[in-house]
Write a protein that binds this DNA or RNA. Structure first.
Length: 578
RNA sequence: CGGGGUGUGGUGUAACGGUAGCAUCCAUGAUUUGGGAUCAUGUAGUCAGAGUUCGAAUCUCUGCACCCCGACCA
Protein backbone atom coordinates (compact mmCIF):
# COMPACT_ATOMS: atom_id res chain seq x y z
CA UNK A 1 0.00 0.00 0.00
CA UNK A 2 1.19 3.47 -0.85
CA UNK A 3 0.67 6.15 1.78
CA UNK A 4 -0.75 8.52 -0.83
CA UNK A 5 -3.53 6.00 -1.42
CA UNK A 6 -4.14 5.26 2.26
CA UNK A 7 -7.06 7.26 3.56
CA UNK A 8 -7.66 8.70 5.99
CA UNK A 9 -4.17 9.28 7.30
CA UNK A 10 -3.01 10.23 10.78
CA UNK A 11 -4.81 12.92 12.76
CA UNK A 12 -2.22 13.84 15.31
CA UNK A 13 -3.31 16.34 17.88
CA UNK A 14 -6.88 16.08 16.75
CA UNK A 15 -8.35 13.93 19.49
CA UNK A 16 -9.33 14.79 23.04
CA UNK A 17 -6.99 13.98 25.89
CA UNK A 18 -9.23 12.32 28.48
CA UNK A 19 -8.92 8.75 27.29
CA UNK A 20 -6.63 5.77 27.60
CA UNK A 21 -3.41 5.63 25.64
CA UNK A 22 -4.52 2.80 23.39
CA UNK A 23 -7.82 4.43 22.50
CA UNK A 24 -6.11 7.71 21.75
CA UNK A 25 -3.41 6.11 19.54
CA UNK A 26 -6.01 4.14 17.58
CA UNK A 27 -7.89 7.37 16.88
CA UNK A 28 -4.84 9.50 16.14
CA UNK A 29 -3.20 6.97 13.88
CA UNK A 30 -6.42 6.51 11.92
CA UNK A 31 -7.31 2.91 12.79
CA UNK A 32 -10.82 3.69 14.03
CA UNK A 33 -13.33 6.50 14.07
CA UNK A 34 -16.36 6.91 16.27
CA UNK A 35 -19.69 7.11 14.50
CA UNK A 36 -21.91 7.27 17.57
CA UNK A 37 -21.40 6.29 21.21
CA UNK A 38 -20.37 2.65 21.26
CA UNK A 39 -20.23 2.42 17.50
CA UNK A 40 -16.96 2.59 15.59
CA UNK A 41 -15.89 2.59 11.98
CA UNK A 42 -12.89 0.33 11.38
CA UNK A 43 -10.82 2.43 8.99
CA UNK A 44 -8.51 0.75 6.46
CA UNK A 45 -5.64 0.35 8.94
CA UNK A 46 -7.93 -0.93 11.68
CA UNK A 47 -9.62 -3.25 9.23
CA UNK A 48 -6.30 -4.88 8.36
CA UNK A 49 -5.49 -5.54 12.02
CA UNK A 50 -8.98 -6.83 12.77
CA UNK A 51 -8.86 -9.19 9.80
CA UNK A 52 -5.57 -10.64 11.03
CA UNK A 53 -6.92 -11.16 14.53
CA UNK A 54 -9.85 -13.02 12.99
CA UNK A 55 -7.52 -15.09 10.80
CA UNK A 56 -5.56 -16.21 13.87
CA UNK A 57 -8.76 -17.11 15.71
CA UNK A 58 -10.07 -19.18 12.78
CA UNK A 59 -6.71 -20.83 12.32
CA UNK A 60 -6.33 -21.89 15.94
CA UNK A 61 -9.94 -23.13 16.00
CA UNK A 62 -9.43 -25.27 12.92
CA UNK A 63 -6.16 -26.66 14.21
CA UNK A 64 -8.14 -28.02 17.19
CA UNK A 65 -10.94 -29.43 14.98
CA UNK A 66 -13.46 -26.79 15.97
CA UNK A 67 -16.03 -26.26 13.21
CA UNK A 68 -16.36 -22.72 11.85
CA UNK A 69 -19.81 -21.55 10.79
CA UNK A 70 -21.85 -18.36 10.63
CA UNK A 71 -25.05 -17.68 12.56
CA UNK A 72 -27.71 -15.05 11.83
CA UNK A 73 -27.83 -11.76 13.69
CA UNK A 74 -31.62 -11.51 13.48
CA UNK A 75 -32.84 -13.97 16.09
CA UNK A 76 -36.54 -14.91 16.33
CA UNK A 77 -38.24 -14.02 19.61
CA UNK A 78 -39.66 -17.52 19.86
CA UNK A 79 -36.23 -19.00 20.59
CA UNK A 80 -35.64 -16.55 23.40
CA UNK A 81 -39.05 -17.28 24.87
CA UNK A 82 -38.06 -20.92 25.14
CA UNK A 83 -35.09 -20.12 27.34
CA UNK A 84 -37.07 -17.47 29.23
CA UNK A 85 -34.47 -14.87 28.39
CA UNK A 86 -36.56 -12.60 26.13
CA UNK A 87 -38.11 -10.66 29.02
CA UNK A 88 -34.84 -10.54 30.87
CA UNK A 89 -32.80 -9.28 27.94
CA UNK A 90 -35.32 -6.82 26.57
CA UNK A 91 -36.46 -5.85 30.10
CA UNK A 92 -32.97 -4.87 31.17
CA UNK A 93 -32.60 -3.22 27.75
CA UNK A 94 -29.54 -5.23 26.81
CA UNK A 95 -31.00 -6.60 23.60
CA UNK A 96 -32.02 -4.45 20.68
CA UNK A 97 -35.31 -5.65 19.30
CA UNK A 98 -36.96 -5.13 15.98
CA UNK A 99 -40.27 -6.03 14.43
CA UNK A 100 -41.00 -7.60 11.08
CA UNK A 101 -43.34 -5.12 9.40
CA UNK A 102 -45.88 -7.42 7.74
CA UNK A 103 -46.53 -10.00 10.42
CA UNK A 104 -45.42 -8.15 13.54
CA UNK A 105 -43.03 -10.97 14.40
CA UNK A 106 -40.32 -9.87 16.80
CA UNK A 107 -36.61 -10.38 16.52
CA UNK A 108 -33.66 -9.67 18.76
CA UNK A 109 -30.36 -8.48 17.38
CA UNK A 110 -27.83 -11.09 18.48
CA UNK A 111 -26.28 -10.12 21.81
CA UNK A 112 -25.00 -13.70 21.99
CA UNK A 113 -26.10 -16.93 20.31
CA UNK A 114 -26.92 -19.66 22.85
CA UNK A 115 -30.53 -19.85 21.67
CA UNK A 116 -29.73 -20.13 17.98
CA UNK A 117 -26.99 -22.65 18.43
CA UNK A 118 -28.94 -24.77 20.94
CA UNK A 119 -31.81 -24.85 18.46
CA UNK A 120 -29.36 -26.02 15.82
CA UNK A 121 -28.09 -28.68 18.21
CA UNK A 122 -31.63 -29.81 19.02
CA UNK A 123 -32.41 -30.22 15.35
CA UNK A 124 -29.19 -31.82 14.19
CA UNK A 125 -27.56 -33.78 17.00
CA UNK A 126 -29.14 -37.24 17.22
CA UNK A 127 -26.77 -39.66 18.82
CA UNK A 128 -23.99 -39.94 21.36
CA UNK A 129 -21.93 -40.99 18.34
CA UNK A 130 -22.09 -37.39 17.08
CA UNK A 131 -20.53 -35.97 20.23
CA UNK A 132 -18.76 -33.85 21.06
CA UNK A 133 -19.91 -31.14 18.66
CA UNK A 134 -18.13 -27.79 18.80
CA UNK A 135 -19.20 -24.84 16.65
CA UNK A 136 -17.51 -21.50 16.30
CA UNK A 137 -18.34 -18.27 14.53
CA UNK A 138 -17.05 -14.74 14.36
CA UNK A 139 -19.84 -12.23 14.03
CA UNK A 140 -21.23 -8.87 15.07
CA UNK A 141 -22.95 -8.66 18.40
CA UNK A 142 -25.30 -5.96 19.55
CA UNK A 143 -25.80 -4.96 23.15
CA UNK A 144 -27.57 -1.82 24.20
CA UNK A 145 -24.90 -0.92 26.71
CA UNK A 146 -26.19 1.62 29.16
CA UNK A 147 -23.00 3.59 28.88
CA UNK A 148 -20.58 2.70 26.11
CA UNK A 149 -17.08 3.95 26.80
CA UNK A 150 -13.34 3.61 26.44
CA UNK A 151 -13.25 3.28 22.68
CA UNK A 152 -13.46 -0.31 21.53
CA UNK A 153 -13.68 -1.68 25.07
CA UNK A 154 -17.38 -1.23 25.55
CA UNK A 155 -19.41 -0.84 22.39
CA UNK A 156 -23.05 -1.28 21.47
CA UNK A 157 -21.92 -3.01 18.33
CA UNK A 158 -18.82 -5.17 18.34
CA UNK A 159 -17.24 -8.21 16.81
CA UNK A 160 -17.09 -11.42 18.80
CA UNK A 161 -15.67 -14.84 18.31
CA UNK A 162 -18.19 -17.14 19.98
CA UNK A 163 -18.03 -20.90 20.28
CA UNK A 164 -20.40 -23.50 21.72
CA UNK A 165 -19.70 -27.07 22.72
CA UNK A 166 -22.11 -29.97 23.23
CA UNK A 167 -21.16 -33.08 25.13
CA UNK A 168 -22.85 -36.17 26.51
CA UNK A 169 -22.01 -35.62 30.15
CA UNK A 170 -20.26 -33.46 32.69
CA UNK A 171 -16.88 -35.03 32.04
CA UNK A 172 -17.24 -34.30 28.34
CA UNK A 173 -18.23 -30.70 29.03
CA UNK A 174 -15.24 -30.31 31.31
CA UNK A 175 -13.00 -31.67 28.56
CA UNK A 176 -14.34 -29.18 26.03
CA UNK A 177 -14.00 -26.40 28.59
CA UNK A 178 -10.37 -27.34 29.16
CA UNK A 179 -9.80 -27.47 25.42
CA UNK A 180 -10.98 -23.86 25.15
CA UNK A 181 -8.73 -22.80 27.98
CA UNK A 182 -5.92 -24.15 25.84
CA UNK A 183 -7.22 -22.63 22.58
CA UNK A 184 -7.67 -19.21 24.18
CA UNK A 185 -4.23 -19.25 25.71
CA UNK A 186 -2.82 -20.03 22.29
CA UNK A 187 -4.84 -17.29 20.56
CA UNK A 188 -3.89 -14.61 23.07
CA UNK A 189 -0.25 -15.57 22.76
CA UNK A 190 -0.36 -15.47 18.97
CA UNK A 191 -2.01 -12.08 18.74
CA UNK A 192 0.74 -10.67 20.92
CA UNK A 193 -0.74 -10.07 24.35
CA UNK A 194 2.25 -9.96 26.67
CA UNK A 195 0.45 -10.34 29.98
CA UNK A 196 -2.79 -12.27 29.88
CA UNK A 197 -4.03 -14.13 32.92
CA UNK A 198 -6.87 -16.54 33.52
CA UNK A 199 -9.09 -15.75 36.50
CA UNK A 200 -12.28 -17.02 38.12
CA UNK A 201 -15.34 -15.00 37.26
CA UNK A 202 -19.00 -14.48 37.87
CA UNK A 203 -21.03 -15.84 34.98
CA UNK A 204 -23.51 -12.94 34.88
CA UNK A 205 -26.49 -13.05 32.55
CA UNK A 206 -25.22 -16.05 30.59
CA UNK A 207 -25.70 -18.26 33.65
CA UNK A 208 -24.20 -21.64 34.38
CA UNK A 209 -21.90 -22.80 37.13
CA UNK A 210 -18.25 -22.41 36.27
CA UNK A 211 -16.76 -19.55 34.37
CA UNK A 212 -13.31 -18.23 33.77
CA UNK A 213 -12.10 -14.99 32.27
CA UNK A 214 -9.00 -14.12 30.28
CA UNK A 215 -7.70 -10.76 31.36
CA UNK A 216 -5.21 -8.62 29.50
CA UNK A 217 -3.47 -6.96 32.42
CA UNK A 218 -3.31 -3.20 32.01
CA UNK A 219 -3.11 -0.80 34.90
CA UNK A 220 -4.09 2.19 32.82
CA UNK A 221 -6.58 0.74 30.38
CA UNK A 222 -8.22 -2.05 32.38
CA UNK A 223 -11.81 -1.71 33.55
CA UNK A 224 -11.90 -4.77 35.79
CA UNK A 225 -10.21 -5.23 39.13
CA UNK A 226 -8.35 -8.50 39.55
CA UNK A 227 -7.11 -10.12 42.73
CA UNK A 228 -4.21 -12.48 42.43
CA UNK A 229 -2.15 -14.41 44.91
CA UNK A 230 1.63 -14.06 44.64
CA UNK A 231 2.16 -17.38 46.42
CA UNK A 232 -0.15 -19.77 44.57
CA UNK A 233 -1.87 -19.36 41.19
CA UNK A 234 -5.21 -18.14 42.55
CA UNK A 235 -6.68 -15.30 40.55
CA UNK A 236 -10.20 -13.90 40.40
CA UNK A 237 -12.21 -10.96 39.25
CA UNK A 238 -12.96 -8.76 42.25
CA UNK A 239 -16.68 -9.38 41.70
CA UNK A 240 -16.09 -13.10 42.26
CA UNK A 241 -13.04 -13.22 44.52
CA UNK A 242 -13.28 -14.71 47.99
CA UNK A 243 -10.79 -14.00 50.72
CA UNK A 244 -9.88 -14.81 54.26
CA UNK A 245 -10.19 -11.57 56.15
CA UNK A 246 -7.66 -10.53 58.77
CA UNK A 247 -9.05 -11.55 62.17
CA UNK A 248 -9.16 -9.17 65.10
CA UNK A 249 -7.79 -10.09 68.48
CA UNK A 250 -10.43 -12.40 69.94
CA UNK A 251 -12.36 -11.23 72.97
CA UNK A 252 -11.81 -13.62 75.83
CA UNK A 253 -15.15 -13.48 77.58
CA UNK A 254 -18.59 -12.20 76.79
CA UNK A 255 -19.73 -9.00 78.41
CA UNK A 256 -22.25 -9.10 81.19
CA UNK A 257 -24.97 -7.27 79.29
CA UNK A 258 -25.41 -5.26 76.18
CA UNK A 259 -26.33 -1.60 76.43
CA UNK A 260 -27.93 0.96 74.20
CA UNK A 261 -25.98 4.22 73.88
CA UNK A 262 -26.76 7.60 72.48
CA UNK A 263 -24.36 8.11 69.57
CA UNK A 264 -24.98 11.43 67.85
CA UNK A 265 -23.79 12.05 64.28
CA UNK A 266 -22.64 8.51 63.62
CA UNK A 267 -23.99 7.43 60.28
CA UNK A 268 -20.87 5.63 59.19
CA UNK A 269 -18.31 3.30 60.65
CA UNK A 270 -15.69 6.06 60.44
CA UNK A 271 -17.86 8.28 62.62
CA UNK A 272 -18.16 5.48 65.18
CA UNK A 273 -14.44 4.83 65.24
CA UNK A 274 -13.97 8.51 66.09
CA UNK A 275 -16.52 8.31 68.87
CA UNK A 276 -15.11 5.07 70.32
CA UNK A 277 -11.35 5.32 69.69
CA UNK A 278 -10.58 2.10 71.58
CA UNK A 279 -13.10 0.11 69.57
CA UNK A 280 -11.75 -1.09 66.22
CA UNK A 281 -13.92 -1.27 63.08
CA UNK A 282 -13.40 -5.04 63.19
CA UNK A 283 -15.48 -5.12 66.35
CA UNK A 284 -18.39 -3.32 64.77
CA UNK A 285 -21.06 -4.98 62.69
CA UNK A 286 -22.85 -2.87 60.17
CA UNK A 287 -26.28 -3.78 58.95
CA UNK A 288 -27.25 -2.74 55.46
CA UNK A 289 -30.82 -2.82 54.19
CA UNK A 290 -31.10 -3.73 50.52
CA UNK A 291 -33.95 -4.06 48.08
CA UNK A 292 -33.97 -7.06 45.77
CA UNK A 293 -35.71 -7.47 42.41
CA UNK A 294 -37.09 -3.97 42.31
CA UNK A 295 -36.77 -4.01 38.53
CA UNK A 296 -39.27 -6.87 38.32
CA UNK A 297 -41.96 -4.62 39.78
CA UNK A 298 -43.37 -3.78 43.23
CA UNK A 299 -45.06 -7.16 43.70
CA UNK A 300 -41.78 -9.03 43.25
CA UNK A 301 -39.46 -6.81 45.24
CA UNK A 302 -38.47 -7.47 48.84
CA UNK A 303 -36.04 -6.26 51.50
CA UNK A 304 -33.12 -8.06 53.06
CA UNK A 305 -30.55 -7.06 55.66
CA UNK A 306 -26.89 -7.93 55.51
CA UNK A 307 -24.69 -7.93 58.58
CA UNK A 308 -21.03 -7.52 57.83
CA UNK A 309 -17.95 -6.50 59.78
CA UNK A 310 -17.39 -2.76 59.95
CA UNK A 311 -14.13 -2.75 57.99
CA UNK A 312 -15.57 -4.61 54.99
CA UNK A 313 -17.84 -3.80 52.07
CA UNK A 314 -20.64 -5.87 50.59
CA UNK A 315 -20.09 -7.50 47.22
CA UNK A 316 -23.50 -6.93 45.61
CA UNK A 317 -22.92 -9.60 42.96
CA UNK A 318 -22.30 -12.27 45.59
CA UNK A 319 -25.43 -11.16 47.41
CA UNK A 320 -27.44 -11.28 44.20
CA UNK A 321 -26.27 -14.83 43.60
CA UNK A 322 -26.95 -15.87 47.22
CA UNK A 323 -30.53 -14.61 46.88
CA UNK A 324 -30.96 -15.86 43.29
CA UNK A 325 -32.22 -12.36 42.59
CA UNK A 326 -32.27 -10.47 39.30
CA UNK A 327 -31.09 -7.27 40.91
CA UNK A 328 -30.11 -5.96 44.31
CA UNK A 329 -29.48 -2.41 45.39
CA UNK A 330 -29.21 -0.43 48.60
CA UNK A 331 -32.68 0.40 49.88
CA UNK A 332 -33.89 3.96 49.49
CA UNK A 333 -33.86 6.10 52.68
CA UNK A 334 -37.65 6.03 53.16
CA UNK A 335 -37.64 2.24 52.82
CA UNK A 336 -34.86 2.00 55.42
CA UNK A 337 -36.89 4.18 57.77
CA UNK A 338 -39.97 2.04 57.25
CA UNK A 339 -38.05 -1.17 57.88
CA UNK A 340 -35.87 -0.16 60.83
CA UNK A 341 -37.79 2.71 62.36
CA UNK A 342 -34.60 4.74 62.23
CA UNK A 343 -32.69 6.93 59.82
CA UNK A 344 -30.14 5.42 57.47
CA UNK A 345 -27.02 4.44 59.41
CA UNK A 346 -28.58 3.00 62.54
CA UNK A 347 -29.87 -0.41 61.43
CA UNK A 348 -28.96 -3.44 63.49
CA UNK A 349 -29.91 -7.10 63.78
CA UNK A 350 -31.51 -6.77 67.23
CA UNK A 351 -35.27 -6.75 66.92
CA UNK A 352 -35.09 -6.17 63.19
CA UNK A 353 -38.24 -7.27 61.40
CA UNK A 354 -39.90 -6.38 58.12
CA UNK A 355 -37.13 -7.97 56.07
CA UNK A 356 -37.37 -11.28 54.27
CA UNK A 357 -34.02 -12.39 55.65
CA UNK A 358 -30.99 -11.27 57.62
CA UNK A 359 -27.84 -12.58 56.01
CA UNK A 360 -24.57 -12.69 57.91
CA UNK A 361 -21.23 -12.48 56.25
CA UNK A 362 -18.60 -14.98 57.34
CA UNK A 363 -16.59 -12.14 58.81
CA UNK A 364 -19.14 -11.84 61.63
CA UNK A 365 -18.76 -15.44 62.73
CA UNK A 366 -17.26 -15.78 66.22
CA UNK A 367 -17.37 -12.08 67.07
CA UNK A 368 -18.54 -11.13 70.55
CA UNK A 369 -18.92 -7.86 72.44
CA UNK A 370 -19.66 -6.04 69.22
CA UNK A 371 -21.17 -2.70 68.38
CA UNK A 372 -24.18 -2.60 66.10
CA UNK A 373 -26.99 -0.27 65.12
CA UNK A 374 -29.85 0.28 67.55
CA UNK A 375 -32.70 0.56 65.02
CA UNK A 376 -33.24 3.91 66.66
CA UNK A 377 -31.92 7.13 65.19
CA UNK A 378 -28.59 8.14 66.77
CA UNK A 379 -28.39 5.03 68.95
CA UNK A 380 -26.13 1.98 68.87
CA UNK A 381 -25.88 -1.17 70.96
CA UNK A 382 -22.54 -1.99 72.56
CA UNK A 383 -21.20 -5.22 74.03
CA UNK A 384 -23.58 -7.26 71.96
CA UNK A 385 -23.16 -11.02 71.99
CA UNK A 386 -24.69 -12.89 69.04
CA UNK A 387 -26.77 -15.84 70.17
CA UNK A 388 -27.56 -14.10 73.44
CA UNK A 389 -28.76 -10.69 72.32
CA UNK A 390 -30.17 -11.75 68.99
CA UNK A 391 -30.78 -15.11 67.33
CA UNK A 392 -27.52 -16.62 66.14
CA UNK A 393 -27.54 -17.14 62.37
CA UNK A 394 -28.07 -20.66 61.09
CA UNK A 395 -25.40 -20.18 58.51
CA UNK A 396 -22.93 -17.59 57.24
CA UNK A 397 -22.49 -16.43 53.67
CA UNK A 398 -19.54 -15.16 51.72
CA UNK A 399 -20.77 -11.66 50.94
CA UNK A 400 -17.81 -9.37 51.46
CA UNK A 401 -15.75 -7.72 48.80
CA UNK A 402 -12.23 -9.11 48.68
CA UNK A 403 -9.56 -6.43 48.49
CA UNK A 404 -5.80 -6.27 48.33
CA UNK A 405 -4.20 -7.34 51.59
CA UNK A 406 -6.74 -10.05 52.42
CA UNK A 407 -5.39 -13.57 52.61
CA UNK A 408 -5.64 -15.89 49.61
CA UNK A 409 -8.60 -18.30 49.94
CA UNK A 410 -6.71 -21.13 48.22
CA UNK A 411 -3.31 -21.36 49.82
CA UNK A 412 -4.20 -19.33 52.94
CA UNK A 413 -0.65 -17.96 52.77
CA UNK A 414 -0.24 -15.15 50.28
CA UNK A 415 -1.78 -11.73 50.60
CA UNK A 416 -3.96 -10.87 47.62
CA UNK A 417 -2.71 -8.21 45.22
CA UNK A 418 -4.86 -5.94 43.10
CA UNK A 419 -4.38 -5.18 39.44
CA UNK A 420 -6.49 -4.06 36.50
CA UNK A 421 -7.38 -5.95 33.39
CA UNK A 422 -9.36 -5.91 30.17
CA UNK A 423 -11.66 -8.90 29.80
CA UNK A 424 -10.69 -10.23 26.39
CA UNK A 425 -12.22 -13.68 26.71
CA UNK A 426 -14.70 -15.52 28.88
CA UNK A 427 -15.45 -19.24 28.97
CA UNK A 428 -18.53 -20.76 30.61
CA UNK A 429 -19.75 -24.17 31.68
CA UNK A 430 -23.49 -24.12 31.07
CA UNK A 431 -24.40 -27.67 32.06
CA UNK A 432 -27.86 -28.33 30.61
CA UNK A 433 -29.26 -24.90 31.46
CA UNK A 434 -30.21 -24.14 27.86
CA UNK A 435 -30.48 -27.59 26.39
CA UNK A 436 -33.13 -28.60 28.96
CA UNK A 437 -35.27 -25.60 28.13
CA UNK A 438 -34.95 -26.08 24.39
CA UNK A 439 -35.25 -29.85 24.38
CA UNK A 440 -31.80 -30.42 22.94
CA UNK A 441 -31.13 -34.07 23.60
CA UNK A 442 -29.16 -36.95 22.13
CA UNK A 443 -29.90 -40.66 22.18
CA UNK A 444 -27.54 -42.51 24.47
CA UNK A 445 -26.34 -46.08 24.23
CA UNK A 446 -29.39 -47.00 26.30
CA UNK A 447 -31.64 -45.72 23.51
CA UNK A 448 -33.07 -42.97 25.69
CA UNK A 449 -32.82 -39.20 25.18
CA UNK A 450 -30.40 -37.34 27.45
CA UNK A 451 -29.83 -33.61 27.71
CA UNK A 452 -26.72 -32.24 26.06
CA UNK A 453 -24.07 -30.71 28.28
CA UNK A 454 -23.13 -27.36 26.97
CA UNK A 455 -20.31 -24.86 27.19
CA UNK A 456 -19.89 -21.45 25.59
CA UNK A 457 -16.85 -19.36 24.92
CA UNK A 458 -16.34 -15.78 23.74
CA UNK A 459 -13.56 -13.46 22.66
CA UNK A 460 -14.19 -9.79 21.91
CA UNK A 461 -12.10 -9.41 18.79
CA UNK A 462 -12.55 -5.66 18.38
CA UNK A 463 -11.93 -5.16 22.08
CA UNK A 464 -8.89 -7.41 21.76
CA UNK A 465 -7.44 -5.02 19.20
CA UNK A 466 -7.40 -2.23 21.77
CA UNK A 467 -6.06 -4.56 24.49
CA UNK A 468 -3.16 -5.49 22.19
CA UNK A 469 -2.32 -1.82 21.75
CA UNK A 470 -2.56 -1.24 25.49
CA UNK A 471 0.16 -3.83 25.99
CA UNK A 472 2.24 -2.92 22.96
CA UNK A 473 3.03 0.78 22.86
CA UNK A 474 5.45 3.46 23.95
CA UNK A 475 5.20 7.23 24.26
CA UNK A 476 5.37 7.70 20.47
CA UNK A 477 2.69 5.27 19.42
CA UNK A 478 1.75 1.69 18.78
CA UNK A 479 4.20 -1.21 18.47
CA UNK A 480 2.22 -3.88 16.65
CA UNK A 481 3.15 -7.50 17.17
CA UNK A 482 4.15 -8.92 13.76
CA UNK A 483 1.23 -11.36 13.81
CA UNK A 484 -1.45 -8.65 13.67
CA UNK A 485 0.42 -5.62 12.32
CA UNK A 486 -1.39 -3.75 9.53
CA UNK A 487 1.88 -3.88 7.58
CA UNK A 488 4.98 -5.81 8.49
CA UNK A 489 7.29 -3.10 7.23
CA UNK A 490 7.05 0.56 6.28
CA UNK A 491 9.45 2.06 3.76
CA UNK A 492 10.30 5.73 4.30
CA UNK A 493 12.14 7.56 1.57
CA UNK A 494 13.32 10.69 3.34
CA UNK A 495 12.94 12.55 0.05
CA UNK A 496 10.76 10.68 -2.36
CA UNK A 497 11.42 13.30 -5.05
CA UNK A 498 15.12 12.45 -4.99
CA UNK A 499 15.61 10.10 -8.00
CA UNK A 500 17.95 7.68 -6.21
CA UNK A 501 15.73 7.41 -3.18
CA UNK A 502 12.63 7.00 -5.30
CA UNK A 503 14.22 4.24 -7.34
CA UNK A 504 15.49 2.33 -4.31
CA UNK A 505 12.19 2.74 -2.45
CA UNK A 506 10.10 1.62 -5.41
CA UNK A 507 12.36 -1.38 -5.97
CA UNK A 508 12.16 -2.42 -2.33
CA UNK A 509 8.43 -1.90 -2.31
CA UNK A 510 7.84 -4.04 -5.36
CA UNK A 511 10.27 -6.78 -4.36
CA UNK A 512 8.85 -7.10 -0.85
CA UNK A 513 5.27 -6.95 -2.06
CA UNK A 514 6.22 -9.58 -4.61
CA UNK A 515 7.22 -11.86 -1.75
CA UNK A 516 3.79 -11.41 -0.22
CA UNK A 517 5.08 -9.14 2.56
CA UNK A 518 2.47 -6.56 3.61
CA UNK A 519 4.40 -3.35 3.03
CA UNK A 520 3.58 0.34 3.32
CA UNK A 521 5.48 2.94 1.31
CA UNK A 522 5.40 6.54 2.49
CA UNK A 523 5.53 8.09 -0.98
CA UNK A 524 4.39 11.56 0.05
CA UNK A 525 6.65 14.08 -1.66
CA UNK A 526 6.03 17.36 0.08
CA UNK A 527 6.52 16.00 3.58
CA UNK A 528 9.75 16.28 5.53
CA UNK A 529 11.46 13.16 6.88
CA UNK A 530 10.66 14.01 10.48
CA UNK A 531 6.94 14.08 9.85
CA UNK A 532 7.08 10.69 8.18
CA UNK A 533 9.06 9.22 11.08
CA UNK A 534 6.52 10.51 13.58
CA UNK A 535 3.68 9.04 11.58
CA UNK A 536 5.49 5.72 11.29
CA UNK A 537 6.04 5.54 15.06
CA UNK A 538 2.38 6.32 15.64
CA UNK A 539 1.09 3.71 13.20
CA UNK A 540 3.53 1.20 14.63
CA UNK A 541 4.63 -1.22 11.90
CA UNK A 542 7.17 -3.58 13.50
CA UNK A 543 9.88 -2.72 10.95
CA UNK A 544 10.88 0.45 9.15
CA UNK A 545 13.22 0.79 6.21
CA UNK A 546 14.65 4.29 5.86
CA UNK A 547 15.88 5.20 2.39
CA UNK A 548 18.05 8.29 2.72
CA UNK A 549 21.59 9.58 2.38
CA UNK A 550 23.17 6.38 1.13
CA UNK A 551 20.42 5.44 -1.32
CA UNK A 552 22.72 6.00 -4.29
CA UNK A 553 25.13 3.37 -2.90
CA UNK A 554 22.25 0.95 -2.43
CA UNK A 555 22.47 1.16 1.37
CA UNK A 556 19.34 1.54 3.51
CA UNK A 557 18.55 1.45 7.24
CA UNK A 558 16.44 -1.24 8.87
CA UNK A 559 14.91 -0.14 12.17
CA UNK A 560 13.06 -2.19 14.74
CA UNK A 561 10.07 -0.28 16.12
CA UNK A 562 10.23 -1.97 19.51
CA UNK A 563 13.96 -1.94 20.22
CA UNK A 564 14.68 1.10 18.01
CA UNK A 565 17.79 -0.78 16.87
CA UNK A 566 19.08 0.40 13.49
CA UNK A 567 21.14 -1.63 11.02
CA UNK A 568 22.59 -0.44 7.70
CA UNK A 569 22.08 -3.02 5.00
CA UNK A 570 22.38 -3.48 1.27
CA UNK A 571 19.22 -3.91 -0.79
CA UNK A 572 19.44 -7.69 -1.17
CA UNK A 573 20.26 -8.16 2.50
CA UNK A 574 17.30 -6.14 3.64
CA UNK A 575 14.94 -7.99 1.30
CA UNK A 576 16.22 -11.31 2.60
CA UNK A 577 15.38 -10.30 6.14
CA UNK A 578 11.71 -10.75 5.29
C1' C B 1 -31.92 5.57 34.12
C1' G B 2 -29.59 8.53 38.49
C1' G B 3 -25.49 12.18 39.43
C1' G B 4 -21.84 15.69 37.26
C1' G B 5 -19.70 18.35 33.04
C1' U B 6 -19.11 20.46 28.08
C1' G B 7 -21.13 22.46 23.41
C1' U B 8 -17.32 28.54 19.19
C1' G B 9 -14.36 27.16 11.52
C1' G B 10 -12.72 20.00 9.75
C1' U B 11 -9.63 19.77 14.58
C1' G B 12 -7.89 22.26 19.26
C1' U B 13 -8.85 26.75 21.77
C1' A B 14 -9.79 32.56 23.21
C1' A B 15 -13.29 36.63 23.86
C1' C B 16 -16.46 41.93 31.24
C1' G B 17 -23.37 41.54 28.08
C1' G B 18 -20.57 45.65 23.23
C1' U B 19 -15.85 44.54 16.22
C1' A B 20 -16.14 36.52 17.03
C1' G B 21 -9.69 36.19 17.67
C1' C B 22 -5.53 32.52 17.71
C1' A B 23 -3.38 27.89 16.27
C1' U B 24 -3.80 23.80 13.26
C1' C B 25 -5.94 21.26 9.07
C1' C B 26 -7.30 22.06 3.98
C1' A B 27 -6.32 24.88 -0.91
C1' U B 28 -2.70 27.94 -3.98
C1' G B 29 2.37 29.69 -4.69
C1' A B 30 7.49 30.16 -3.23
C1' U B 31 11.68 28.64 -0.33
C1' U B 32 12.92 24.20 2.32
C1' U B 33 13.80 18.89 3.46
C1' G B 34 17.35 12.58 8.53
C1' G B 35 12.62 13.34 13.98
C1' G B 36 5.99 16.89 13.38
C1' A B 37 9.79 23.37 8.21
C1' U B 38 9.10 28.86 6.85
C1' C B 39 6.59 32.81 4.45
C1' A B 40 2.47 34.76 1.68
C1' U B 41 -2.61 34.32 0.13
C1' G B 42 -7.33 31.96 0.52
C1' U B 43 -11.78 28.80 2.30
C1' A B 44 -14.22 27.96 6.79
C1' G B 45 -17.32 28.88 13.06
C1' U B 46 -20.82 30.57 18.21
C1' C B 47 -25.53 22.96 18.79
C1' A B 48 -31.13 24.15 17.93
C1' G B 49 -35.34 26.98 19.52
C1' A B 50 -37.56 30.56 22.69
C1' G B 51 -36.87 34.52 26.26
C1' U B 52 -34.38 38.91 28.93
C1' U B 53 -31.75 43.27 26.68
C1' C B 54 -30.65 49.13 22.85
C1' G B 55 -27.27 44.97 22.17
C1' A B 56 -26.32 37.69 23.74
C1' A B 57 -21.00 33.05 22.17
C1' U B 58 -21.66 35.18 27.15
C1' C B 59 -27.69 35.67 31.30
C1' U B 60 -32.62 32.46 31.70
C1' C B 61 -35.67 28.34 29.96
C1' U B 62 -36.56 24.10 26.76
C1' G B 63 -34.68 20.58 23.52
C1' C B 64 -30.53 17.97 21.33
C1' A B 65 -25.58 16.08 21.19
C1' C B 66 -21.19 14.46 23.36
C1' C B 67 -17.94 13.36 27.68
C1' C B 68 -17.13 11.69 32.89
C1' C B 69 -18.95 8.60 37.67
C1' G B 70 -22.60 4.18 38.90
C1' A B 71 -25.62 -0.56 37.57
C1' C B 72 -24.22 -3.94 32.68
C1' C B 73 -20.25 -6.84 29.80
C1' A B 74 -16.64 -9.73 25.12
Amino acid sequence: MRMTKLFPRTRYGEVGAAMTAAHSFLLKAGFIKQLAPGSYILLPLGFRVWRQIQAIVWDVMESHDVQNLQLPILQPQELWLKTERWDKYTGTKVMFETTERHTGAKFGLAPTAEEVVTQLAAETIDSYRDLPVIWHQIGWKFRDEIRPRHGLLRCREFDMSDAYSFDRDQAGMQKSFDLFRLIYTEIFQRVGLTNCINVQADSGAIGGKGSSEFMAVSEEGGEDILLTCPTCNYGANAEKATSVVPTPTPQSKPSATMRLEYTPNTRTVEDLVKLFPDLDATRMVKTIILTADEELGPSQSYQVAVCIRGDLEINIIKLKNALSAQSVEPAKPDVVRAVTGADVGFAGPIGLQNVRAILFDRSVEGLINILCGGNKTEHHFLDVVPGRDFAAPECYFDLHLAVAGHTCPECKMGLLQESHGIEVGHIFMLQSLYTDKMGATYKGEDGKPHPLWMGCYGIGTTRLMQAIVEQNRDKDGIIWPVSVAPFRVEIIPVKYDNPDQRKVSDTLYERLAGRGIPVLLDDRESLQGGAKFKDADLIGCPWRITVGRRAAEGIVELRNRRTQEVTELGLEDVINRF
